[in-house]
Design a protein around this nucleic acid. Sequence first.
DNA 1: TTGAAAGCGCTAACAG
DNA 2: CTGTTAGCGCTTTCAA
Lengths: 334, 334
Amino acid sequence: MNDVAAAAGVALKTVSRVVNAEPGVHPATADRVRAAIDRLGYRRNDSARTLRRGRTASIGLVIEDAADPFYSGLSRAVEDVALRHGFLMFTGSSSEDPARERELVLAFCARRVDGLVIVPAGADHQYLSPELDAGVSAVFADRPSGSGRDLDTVLCDNAGGARTGVAHLIAHGHRRVGFIADAPSIFTATQRWYGYRQALTRAGLPYDPALVAMGPPEPARVLADVTRLLRLAEPPTALFTGNSRTTVATLRALRALTDPAELAAPVALVGFDDFELADLLGITVVSQHPAELGRAAADLLFSRLSGNKEPAQRRELPTHLIVRGSGEGTFRLF
Amino acid sequence: MNDVAAAAGVALKTVSRVVNAEPGVHPATADRVRAAIDRLGYRRNDSARTLRRGRTASIGLVIEDAADPFYSGLSRAVEDVALRHGFLMFTGSSSEDPARERELVLAFCARRVDGLVIVPAGADHQYLSPELDAGVSAVFADRPSGSGRDLDTVLCDNAGGARTGVAHLIAHGHRRVGFIADAPSIFTATQRWYGYRQALTRAGLPYDPALVAMGPPEPARVLADVTRLLRLAEPPTALFTGNSRTTVATLRALRALTDPAELAAPVALVGFDDFELADLLGITVVSQHPAELGRAAADLLFSRLSGNKEPAQRRELPTHLIVRGSGEGTFRLF
DNA sequence: TTGAAAGCGCTAACAG
DNA sequence: CTGTTAGCGCTTTCAA
């Protein structure tokens, strides 16, 4: 900036004014400055700007996995809101590891991001307290903060969505519905499990723990659980799966377990979360919209960044049942 | 840092030494400093550190769309490499818009990122020159830089992959193979088109422009093109699709165009890019590995950041044919 | 082993 | 409309 000022024959501050489009610079002067800027290839150093102004115009996003379609949809939505506000976004994947989540968040804070959107991997967010005191804003998305203070949170209607999906199966005559989902340590899985039980209760059906299988959505584990369920003395006639990864793993398991001579899968199926090609496969799902989740969280964050001091909010986004066949009759897997 | 120094009864510089784990501080002094740090909730301001040191330990990644599975896989791989090096990563989606790519890249440079991984939307990268002169490193991934200087680039074997896929269809008896792909303005689409023609030539088959349809992978446009191809006087007996979005759009088009009473699709199909559930749908694909692309690009970038001054490199990653049924006979769409 | 001083590049506050 | 000065929080350099 000094060099530009010298080249244009003005003071440093005038260059600053031109660079920041501040009013009150004579057009001719401004032109001279701009010419010098171009000639010298000058670009403002935002690190210095940041240091001086105290605001970085950047936010940090911590998700579970940037490669997971659900979170990448959310990520894109947050990015779009950030860019619309002229903010840049750091991204980090926690891989469902609370320590990594913490490291990422603290690294973002050391970079003095103005705000954070966090899909929490851990339940304990004490570590955030000093940062919040220092002025960062944080919004939780997809899952609530486990402890610490009351913070803005955007969730979907996990229990209601699961209840609707299971009720749909029951309405189609199923009286034994299996539940395959993520580990109970994960908030959304527990909520959906609760919705599953609610649906049973409301229909006057008994809750049978043998029909429930919760754990990581890894193919091997899901295959083992689906196998166990189908070999029960009284096997389920339908399955409700707790998220898209589990649904996909269940589809693979069903294919592995089904005699190719049969055209139909041995059970009906409804899954939580929509996924690409679910339409072509004819899978009925309870859909939530990752982009809407991200947008809502980012909007909330930016309202905080522009001074909104209301008490912490907890928004719950609706889910939608999308009927495609797999939950209404049997469906083909081959 | 000043406050911590005062609280610990030492000079600012001693706090700096402790914070950065520099040697030459008496353990007792260091303990006193650490106690003060904890008491005051002090966290180093990385913006100031950055300003002074000239390095930010951050990189910028510009992709086409964070929500696209291909680019989100690439993104996650770059992120992992960055984190392993102790770097943080800004992400931005260009939406295939050269202006937005440029804005993102320049915004990252203003933040003084040390390096960039760019999936170029535009062909002109003149705007990068001043930044490169100023010392940023840049690596291009998935597509080459259109112009300007010679820069590190990581691609996959687009032409070879397409040639293999088309040759596979020809080997299965198809003599009229349709080609549906992205617009010719997109590097990968042009390369794959070239591979398609190569395969025809090598098999002694004529090139028929009527069998080629290139354009944005939007459902409506793909449906129109598939319709046109299938209604040709001499329709293709097989289709080769140029990327996963196009493949999926083609599948939807085929379903829309096929009488549900028929069990089989009217054509055979091989697609460029693997995608989730392609296995369950039985789609034969030419697979490239987005994570490997990202990893290779990031590795190259970090080798530059640690001083590698060799001439620019162009790496080409192999592709793999994955046979699943749709390219070998007819396949079921329902 | 510890500290003092200078300055990274910028903007806020205040003069002229 | 333009300029001067101070200082953001840190690291580098040099000295004790």
